[in-house]
Design a binder for these strands. Structure first.
Length: 675
DNA sequence: GATTAGATTCCTGGCGATGC
DNA sequence: GCATCGCCAGGAATCTAATC
């Protein structure tokens, strides 16, 4: 039996077993026997019953010793184990690699219209090994000791949730040979992961930082320091045996990227392995469970039904409770037991992980599921259904009904608006060549704000101010500080209610008014007419109905209008907004990088490009065509007619010739011919 | 420029045929 | 009897074109 057992063990596992002492080997053997008490797998393999045809009960008896996958036929297992081997089939036309010959054949037929026998190739070859004599004579024990000493640089973040362990080459052999570097570090990395796995499930990835050099035929020398990353691997505490496999997979991924870099870059050579970053995070898989008491804040909302189940079928009971209403004790599980078979839970685990919710929805076509998380007072979506048929109730107007605008309060004029803009210079940045497979973007310069200007505009001319121009360091921080001071000043102004100023015209207007000047409805005894006055200027805005007068309030927010805020200026502001954490910051995101609008305190930043979709030059020209009288603030700031007329034209600014640290007070203009 | 639906490609397991 | 081969299909990932 033991001979047969040994025969069935994959070669790499067998090698590890052979390194054990006789006593340890027997311990492992007994453990295996206990896990396979019937010894069915091995006996039946001997008879061959399960080899060529599936067994009658469809039992998966052939287990992969590396990853634990089970198969009904030995042939499937053998094929599966190719995934754990170094066997690779490579397409000679495009470099595509796979572990299966039939897949490569299919690939070549489809992609290259080639029908030929494919040859098995060895695993990816290591990069050219450089001959260095230093440290070569070091004893293996010394190398291991040095490696352990050099790996200990560790950084953590997010309350120790993310750990970054940096491993450097221990000697020159490792430094100039990527394959050897991996081989030597594998034990260390595995040990680190096993340590972390004792406490938590983990996710990890590796990133190798190398220096590459290239000599062109004309003798020029080029250098780059690319990073090659693995994909993120997840290992549960029960799956420590997967670590070697995951490491091998990661190393192969890095090697493939490395080779592609060399292939695509034409002539790159490995100069030096700089560092390997091992990033490990704790992994807490989300899944439904059993009854937990709700936090007080959620309990008080009276809108959540918390089923009191003692099993792990929280998800099932929640779904059933949404389908069946019980007035008495709706949280009682017993109510829903008769309906258990009304939903298809085939293949769904308990406790149900988030990853299986979409499967549940597919099996139960009339049910859609949304799942939300709750942490530290915040509710956030965990799973949002993609189904669109759901039971959303939409009330359409009845035939003949007319929809009308009623939010008259939102038509009130904003008393203060700030118009702002930044000016930037470009600064050249150093960078390496991008990997053409990952990105074709080459960063060669960076936009750096050197100035801002803004104009405060008020409904009342008494509160107008000249434009504020700033040039100097920390432009964005100073911009926000200036605006916060403006906000404080405006708040003080708005807190004072100006007494009503009534002219003779207003008295006559009030006497003869029959309709509200806003909603155009006739006055009545209930909705009588009132003099609606501006609390900032004191002037009467019109004769309105009492309803509107009660609704209308001076908006608390101050719009800060920036042209193309979404596309450019928002990036500048967002990069520094973290320094104003004490302010209440809210955003309306368009995506992860762009924002429709955002607020800092009462300052609401909006993009005028979203309302006036043209360049500033076009907008200025259009307005100038109607007459220069529209430029009240500009003409006040620049009264000289020659200068004023120049400012209505599109200007040219030599950004690439500007130096950020220049003395702005002593500007020297270059003659036109220089450009 | 962003989003989305549909197409394409790859991975993997199941199955029966084939050859040694 | 066993290993291998070729094909198929479902699911996931990725790409592409249409649309807003």
């Amino acid at each position: 039996m033991i001979d047969q057992l040994v025969k069935d063990i994959p070669h790499d596992v067998l090698q590890k077993l052979q390194q054990l002492s006789a006593q340890d080997f027997n311990t492992v053997l007994q453990s295996v026997k206990q896990q396979n008490p019937t010894e069915k797998q091995f006996d039946q393999t001997t008879t061959g019953k399960y080899d060529s045809v599936p067994d009658e009960d469809n039992v998966s008896n052939f287990e992969c010793q590396t990853c634990g996958m089970r198969y009904a036929r030995k042939a499937y297992l053998i094929r599966h184990q190719q995934n754990h081997s170094n066997i690779n089939y490579e397409c000679e036309h495009c470099g595509f690699t796979t572990k299966r010959k039939d897949v490569l054949t299919k690939h070549m037929k489809r992609k290259h219209d080639v029908k030929k026998n494919v040859q098995k190739e060895d695993d990816v070859q290591p990069p050219r090994k450089r001959q260095r004599t230093e440290d070569v004579d070091q004893l293996p024990e010394e190398r291991v000791r040095n490696a352990r000493e050099k790996r200990s640089l560790t950084a953590t973040a997010l309350n120790d949730g993310v750990e970054n362990i940096q491993l450097q080459p221990s000697n020159n052999e490792e430094r100039y040979d990527l394959m050897l570097f991996f081989k030597e570090k594998q034990v260390d990395i595995a040990q680190i992961l096993e340590d972390r796995l004792l406490k938590n499930n983990i996710k990890f990835y590796m990133s190798v930082h190398v220096r590459m050099i290239k000599y062109s035929p004309d003798g020029k020398y080029d250098e780059a320091e690319p990073h090659f990353n693995t994909k993120v691997s997840t290992i549960l505490q029960s799956g420590a045996s997967e670590i070697p496999h995951e490491l091998n997979k990661g190393f192969q991924k890095i090697f493939i990227s490395f080779e592609e870099f060399i292939k695509n870059g034409s002539g790159w050579q490995l100069e030096e392995v700089l560092q390997l970053d091992l990033c490990v995070t704790k992994y807490k898989p989300l899944k439904g469970g059993s009854y937990l008491e709700l936090p007080t804040s959620l309990k008080r909302s009276n809108c959540i039904l918390n089923i009191q189940n003692l099993d792990n079928k929280c998800f099932l009971w929640t779904v059933l409770s949404s389908m069946h209403n019980f007035q008495q004790n709706p949280e009682n599980v017993e109510n829903y037991v008769p309906f258990v078979n009304s939903v298809n839970m085939t293949g769904i685990e308990y406790p149900t992980p988030l990853s299986q919710i979409s499967q549940f929805e597919k099996q139960n076509t009339t049910i859609s599921v949304n799942i939300f998380g709750y942490e530290e007072g915040e509710i956030y979506p965990l799973y949002i259904t993609k189904k669109t048929f759901c039971h959303h109730k939409i009330t359409l107007p009845k035939e003949g009904e007319v929809l009308e605008f009623k939010e008259y309060a939102k038509t009130a004029r904003i008393p203060f608006v700030i118009y702002a803009d930044f000016e930037c210079l470009t600064r050249k940045v150093d960078t390496c060549h991008p990997n053409p497979n990952m990105s074709s973007t080459t960063t060669y310069q960076q936009m750096e704000p050197y100035s801002f200007g803004y104009q405060r505009v008020s409904i009342d001319k008494r509160y107008d101010k000249p434009p504020v121009i700033y040039r100097g360091p920390d432009v964005v921080e100073n911009f926000i500080r200036h605006l916060l001071e403006e906000e404080k000043e405006i708040r003080d102004i708005l807190s004072r209610i100006e007494p009503m100023i009534i002219t003779e015209y207003d008295k006559l207007d009030y006497k003869y008014a029959k309709k509200c000047y806003v909603c155009k409805k006739a006055f009545s005894s209930k909705n009588y007419k009132v003099k609606e006055h501006d609390h900032v200027t004191g002037f009467i805005r019109g004769i309105s109905c009492n309803n509107y007068n009660l609704q209308i309030k001076i908006p608390k927010f101050i719009p800060v209008v920036i042209h193309n805020l979404k596309g450019f200026d928002a990036n500048l502001i967002m990069s520094k907004i973290g320094k104003f954490k004490e302010q209440d910051i809210t955003v309306i995101p368009h995506n992860k990088e762009k924002y429709m609008s955002f607020s800092i305190g009462n300052l609401r930043f909006i993009d005028s490009l979203q309302f006036l979709n043209s360049s500033l030059a076009t907008l200025t020209k259009n307005l100038a065509d109607e007459g220069q009288k529209h430029f009240n603030y500009l003409s006040k700031t620049f009264p000289d007619p020659d200068v004023f007329s120049l400012l209505l034209r599109k200007g040219v600014f030599p950004m690439i010739m500007s130096i950020p640290s220049r003395n702005w007070k002593n500007l020297v203009y270059h003659p036109k011919k220089i450009f």
